[in-house]
Design a protein around this nucleic acid. Structure first.
Lengths: 148, 148
DNA sequence: TTTCAACTTGTAATCATTACAATATAGAAA
DNA sequence: TTTCTATATTGTAATGATTACAAGTTGAAA
């Protein structure tokens, strides 16, 4: 896990104040796998008793707006968050709602080349996101139950 | 727009009963561009007075489960629906929340080739969805043609 | 250390979606 | 065509994630 000092620096560099809540939220984002807000609230509450859900929602919004974290979308309708701002894609399984990050620079440059040649009429492309749908072959990662 | 007869046949072929509500929902899906449920409700209500929102939600769920339509996800948190079940991708502008369909068989086979060679460990890939993020250069909706 | 904008908190509101129970209807069977 | 019943629709009320708001607290600049 990233040292607190580094997290604090990231927060500060975006012109935000460093607060225990913000640090804890970012740590939770790193610890958990694409958590939904509710999971983050649960996790952070263990470190900061009396934490308000509102704070977590606010914090997530602020961090997203500063591009420190990202929102991710799955087929399940709840929002999820992602600590990793580097360019990556997602492996997603509809059955289990499990999602893993997928890094593939080779694929990225392939796509960049493709779209450099092939212009889309009337559209200025800025970012390519892939969602790779399928099934995971082992159960290793704990599946988060919808209404557990 | 597709003739009612064809729509009715599609519904029936999935073992569902043909109802005015279901036909109207599918027609609305074809008329509107990636509408959210609320837009569908508004549109269908004009043809079927006294329509219950619940019916639309139910109908959408059923049609999705029968793969007659699809759910689509955008950065805005509301669910959207898509009448076109053929494989396609999406052009999406975060500022305006506008979304267009994007067909590109050449790209699809490029990606298929790529992933045929490159196996993802522990993951059985079934479908690739691209979300192309960027900006539309004009306000009128462009119909994306085969080789745009 | 003081000061104050920025941050957090808690309650209440919102709003898309869902549960449920009563009623109506499509379409198979007679 | 009429009957019958599983399937659909409806309306109301509930849910649950998220947001608004107002009051209190705190990080950090001076």
């Amino acid at each position: 896990m990233k040292p607190v000092k580094e997290i604090a620096h990231t927060i500060s560099a975006s012109g935000l104040k460093i607060t225990p809540q913000r640090i804890a939220v970012i740590q939770a984002l790193e610890k958990l796998e694409h958590p939904r807000a509710e999971e983050i609230i649960r996790e952070v509450s263990e470190h900061i008793p009396g934490l308000s859900p509102t704070t977590v929602y606010n914090t997530l919004d602020v961090l997203v707006s500063k591009k420190i974290i990202r929102k991710v979308h799955t087929e399940a309708d709840v929002m999820r968050y992602d600590a990793i701002p580097d360019h990556h894609h997602h492996l997603y399984c509809m059955q289990s709602d499990r999602m893993d990050d997928y890094f593939d620079p080779e694929l990225d440059s392939l796509l960049e080349d493709y779209f450099r040649k092939k212009n889309i009429k009337g559209f200025k492309l800025k970012e390519i996101k892939l969602q790779l749908m399928g099934e995971f072959e082992n159960k290793e990662r704990t599946v988060i139950e919808k209404n557990a």
